[in-house]
Design a protein around this nucleic acid. Sequence first.
DNA 1: TTTTATGATCGTAAAATTACGATTTATTGA
DNA 2: TCAATAAATCGTAATTTTACGATCATAAAA
Lengths: 110, 110
Amino acid sequence: MELTKTAQFTDEDILIARYAKALGHPARIAILRVLLERKACICGDIVDELPLSQSTVSQHLKELKEVGLIQGDIDGKKVCYCINEQVWKQAQETLGELFKRYTSCDNNCC
Amino acid sequence: MELTKTAQFTDEDILIARYAKALGHPARIAILRVLLERKACICGDIVDELPLSQSTVSQHLKELKEVGLIQGDIDGKKVCYCINEQVWKQAQETLGELFKRYTSCDNNCC
DNA sequence: TTTTATGATCGTAAAATTACGATTTATTGA
DNA sequence: TCAATAAATCGTAATTTTACGATCATAAAA
């Protein structure tokens, strides 16, 4: 007999997955690291730091922007990217919550 | 003039991205949550908890197993999954490190 | 105004993900 | 041995991701 599968995914799980997915590519981690290192926001020299073409980097930036982890302000001809503090902390918090849920178990099964 | 793009991605960035990617789907978050809630390891009743077919769940389990976040022990006819403490903590640590790197900046640009 | 530089977007190809039903493998119980 | 159950794997379709060159839009500089 099969129980009905009622459960859809919860909003929180969807959110966590969204953040995680955005972090799920080395290029995007590298971009964030550039933004973290130079406190002052940066523009397209991100492109010079990465082993990828301008258009590809732009795409990755877009994805990070879409989840809100970064934001970009137009500054004349250039665009200045930086980490969005609020979203960054929310992601940190949400993911951290998940990880913290683990309490090592003494049972032998695994 | 173009600077040569020397930089490949670092091992650490690749590792972080790997963990994040594994967490980048609501189904896998849901699976982990099941494993976290019932301290005792669980088998295929995970399938009953998720709104997905058996084969799809099995695929997600495989991905989590491949990054090492979970492990599965065969127990007779059934298979018992649980979180791999070491890898779990390593992922927590590595991702946590990245998030901690942020120090709010006072500059106005963003 | 015309050129130049920056960066987004478009079009597209290749690869990876996601999902499912069907099949296979292995083990327990009749 | 034979049927039943649990879970992995296979085959496959649809979608998404990743990457790039080319083009477009905008602003600064000439």
